[in-house]
Each structure stands twice: as C-alpha cells, then as structure tokens.
Design a protein around this nucleic acid. Sequence first.
RNA 1: GCUGGAAUCGUGUAGCGGCAAUCACGGAAGACUGUAAAUCUUCUGCCUUUCGGCUUCGUAGGUUCGAGUCCUACUUCCAGCA
Length: 291
Amino acid sequence: MINKNKPLVVIVGPTASGKTSLAIDLAKEFGGEIICADSRSVYKDMNIGTAKVANAEMNGIPHWGLDLASPGDYFNAFDFKNYAINKIAEIRSRGNIPFLVGGTGLYVDAIIFDYQFSKGVDVDERTTLEKMTITELQDYCRKNNIELPENNKNKRHLIRSIETKDHPAAKKDKPINNTIIVGLTTSKDELLTRIEFRVEQMLKDGVVEEAILLGKKYGWSSEALKSDIYRVIKLYIDGVIKFDEIKTKTTILDWRLSKRQMTWLRRNKFIKWFNIKQAKTYIYSQLAKLG
RNA sequence: GCUGGAAUCGUGUAGCGGCAAUCACGGAAGACUGUAAAUCUUCUGCCUUUCGGCUUCGUAGGUUCGAGUCCUACUUCCAGCA
C-alpha cells in the first residue's frame, strides 16, 4: 500500500497562461506525471495549432491524454473522465503524483467533481433530432414535459435535454478528496501578448501546412478542425482572408476562448488563484508537507 | 482652381422628413455533464435597478408641427477635369 495518499494536483487557467511549463517544472521536482485535460490535444496530428506539448519540452515527464483520438472521432468528456480516472490510479500506483493540467473546464470538472454522466448518445435518435429546427425541438420538449435548458435556443443543449430525459446527471458538491486545485491568473495585457506571440510561433512552425494536411486527411467538416486557428486557416485557404489576417483573427478567437474558459472556471469556488510564481510556491509548499 | 460625390455609435455600413437610429465586425458579461478551442444568450451613446430621462448622425444657421434625411454657408475627405 504505497502512497495511496499522493494528492491530485490540478492546474487550470486560460489558454496560453503557462500551465504546461509550470506543471512540468513541478512534476520534475516531485516525481509527477501529467494528464492533459485538453479537448484539442487529444487529437492526433493536431500538434502545432493546438500548442500541444512537444516531446522536447516534456523534460522527461510522462504526459498522458495526448493523441487519444483522430480528428473526426467521437471523443468527449465521458471518454476523458474514464481515461483520466484510470490514469490517475495508475500514476499513483507507481508512487508518482498525478498532475491534471488543462484548459477544458468540463473535462477538469468531470474529474474533480466526479461527474456521473447521463445517457450516452444514440446515433439514430441524434440524427433524427438534428434534423429538427429549434422551435420544433422546443415544442417537442413542451409536449413531452421536458424542462427546457437555460440555453433554450442552443440546439445542442435542446437535443441533449431530450436525449437525457429521465436520466439525470449528478456531481459532487465538493472536489474529490486529496486534490490541490490551482488556477493561474494573468493580466489582460500579458495574456494577450502571450497569445499573439504563440500564434506567430505557430505560423512560423508551419500550422498552415499542418492544417492543409489535416484537411486532406480528415476532411474539413470534422469538429476538431473548427478549433480556433484551423478554422481561420481554412478561410485563408479558401481565399476569404489574406495571410496577414490569420494572425489577428486567431488572436481574437483565442482571446475569446480564454474568456470563456475563465467564465467557466470562475464559478468553481475551490480553485485557488495565483500568478505563476505564487502558484509554484504554493504547490511546492503543499507537496513539501507530504515529504 | 473648376466639377461631382461623401461626412452616422471603437471600425465598416443601413437609414422614401416622423421611434437612439440598421447590419456586420470588434468589445463586455453570462450559460453550458456524452461535440466544450464546440454551441448558445444578453448587453454595447450617456444617466437610471425598472419605468423612464438626457444628448446624438462633420460645424453653424435655415425650412418644417417634426430633420441623420430638405436648403444655405463653412470645414475636411475622395473622384474626375485642370
């Protein structure tokens, strides 16, 4: 029974806030392994455009949660939870500290609040529902005594409400035991600069070529290729925008993404917010206590 | 210098004389448990919690019950001629 009580270290924050390198530093120090809670880096071949950690950056730290699916595959929060729960146990069984790191709030919450997912997707049912209009879906809900979701004009949410009728979801009020949850704060200017810089870097590293390959291999209709920079590059390829506009447009999309991420994270009262330096000190002290 | 056109919310635009005034972009806030870098909602002249109030469409006048819309002058910009 070794190290049953190794904590789960959770590091969250908006895109480009520096989560990854912080996690690598700490994992190096304390014998950790990293699970990326990122709905984009689960996809194979989407490397540059998702800012996926490169092997060179990993500094020898095992990284999990990468390349689990191909663009176009159905990979979702449910899959992620199952994967990550097992990984966490596995890492602990090796006597190492699991680090859950990422910007996909839903994925992170699925773990720390132990989401009990509702019914899965029935492809036939889904296909039928998708053909309906928003008003039709709303009417269907009313007629069948299904409570409308708060986002009652959101087709996806409407469909989901219908699909999960009589199958309530559940979660814990508090994070699962033995977790250290840290959020990285950044100033607006700082984050914007980092985002811009990262986009420039991606362009230099050849995202455009990557995107073209992805489009050829998996088709542009795949949901994964709607991710910020790829969808912008698609516009460029189609001649809708000029090359120079890729940078500005992607920066805008990334900035919005970071804001949505913050909106999600803000309501989690259990996150302790710090800037990178403070976060390091804090986690360091927490882990040092354990010896 | 002459002639013609244009000046509207951060930006680009809509606006047969009668609602602070269209749409897009950009911005802000928010929702979201099986696609979440997705998807969706609200707000975006000023004041106000709501009702509502106030001030707006280059500037200054004028016509009109009423002007972003018509007239005059001025300013600036664009195009053609020179």
